[in-house]
């Protein structure tokens, strides 16, 4: 197990080198000059001399490979550079935004599970009935409705008339989390409920379900212990990818609810050509994806004993 983890962590290195280097190149190719943007933001006249000085200050004078290597050197020492626009360390900027993003991701996933688990299961069990069709229709609507529209609907018809829930920002305690989580979770739930329904239908046709019935097990035990557990395995795979995306921030929802998350930070950084922040963000995403997928792979082990982590393990007979 430890050997396996070490191996997986080693794969992290080439992945991160790859994505950060590609981002570096892409940013360089992309039109727009960070020095120019910075000058105009600060109402300084854009003259060739001023531009030159600004470039120097931002460390843009060197050729690209040199810049990448010096950035890399900083990263190894735990220094992600400073933001072009605020002058704050990038790590501090990202860390200050991360809690809001994690909160929203957790809230969205919670809403997703609360909706998708019972709906997906019910749809599979009621296959072909009115309830199933209704559920599938709802899922279709949920999957098709754009999150900005759903978010605006919730704000207009729930937050504004009732005044219970803050319309914008995080508010006091967790109450501000409610509407963004619902907006996020609803769209996700549609996909997951459909996936769960399809998997469950497949598993319910397998022989071991018939065998469980032949032994007189209760239907609840058969669904919970036999069908759901096997049907959840593909769901967990998708969950790894979804969580990675959520940690990257959900730009649209963060915009609508004025949610101070990582996604907005990244989008603003892209508009400002704020290279260090973009680099820091990409690095975070790379780590998050690799790490979450590692977590998912480990969780397979508990869901499905047939999955072996390394040679010689898991086989006793």
């Amino acid at each position: 197990m430890l050997k396996y983890l070490a191996k997986r962590f080693l794969t992290l290195i080439p992945v991160l080198l790859g994505v950060t280097f590609i981002t570096f190149i892409l940013m360089d190719i992309a039109p727009g000059d960070p020095a120019e943007i910075m000058l105009s933001r600060r109402d300084i006249e854009v003259t060739p001399e001023n531009l030159e000085r600004a470039r120097e200050a931002l460390g843009l004078g060197e050729p690209l490979p040199v810049r990448y290597l010096s950035w890399l050197q900083g990263v190894i020492q735990g220094n992600l550079g400073t933001s072009f626009t605020t002058g704050e360390p990038v790590s501090r900027e990202i860390i200050s935004r991360l809690p809001a993003t994690i909160e929203l991701a957790a809230g969205g996933l919670a809403v997703m599970f609360i909706l998708a688990l019972p709906l997906g299961t019910a749809a599979a069990l009621l296959r072909g009935t009115f309830g199933d069709h209704l559920g599938r229709l709802t899922a279709l609507v949920g999957a098709s409705i754009p999150s900005f529209y759903l978010g605006l609907l919730l704000i207009t018809y729930i937050a504004v008339p009732t005044q219970w829930i803050p319309v914008m920002g995080r508010g006091e305690g967790l109450i501000g989390l409610v509407l963004p989580s619902i907006t996020l979770g609803f769209g996700l739930a549609a996909t997951y409920a459909r996936l769960l329904r399809a998997n469950l239908l497949e598993v319910l046709q397998l022989d071991f379900i018939r065998s469980a019935r032949s032994r007189g097990l209760k239907e609840t035990v058969i669904i919970g212990n036999y069908a759901l557990r096997n049907a959840l395995i593909p769901v967990v795979t998708l969950l790894g990818i979804t969580m990675g995306h959520l940690l990257g921030g959900t730009v649209v929802i963060e915009r609508i609810f004025a949610w101070p998350g990582v996604g907005r930070l990244a989008v603003d950084a892209i508009f400002d050509r704020n290279y260090p922040v973009i680099q820091g963000y990409v690095l975070l995403m790379g780590v998050a994806f690799v790490f979450l997928n590692l977590l998912i792979d480990i969780s397979y082990r508990f869901l499905d004993p047939r999955v072996k982590m390394e040679e010689g393990e898991g086989q006793t007979g």
């Binding site: 397998l206 022989d207 071991f208 065998s211 469980a212 212990n225 036999y226 557990r229 096997n230 869901l303 499905d304 004993p305 047939r306």
Partner: peptide, 8 residues
């Protein structure tokens, strides 16, 4: 093999 639930 199909008598038993593979994950129990």
């Amino acid at each position: 093999l199909s008598t038993f639930n593979p994950v129990r």
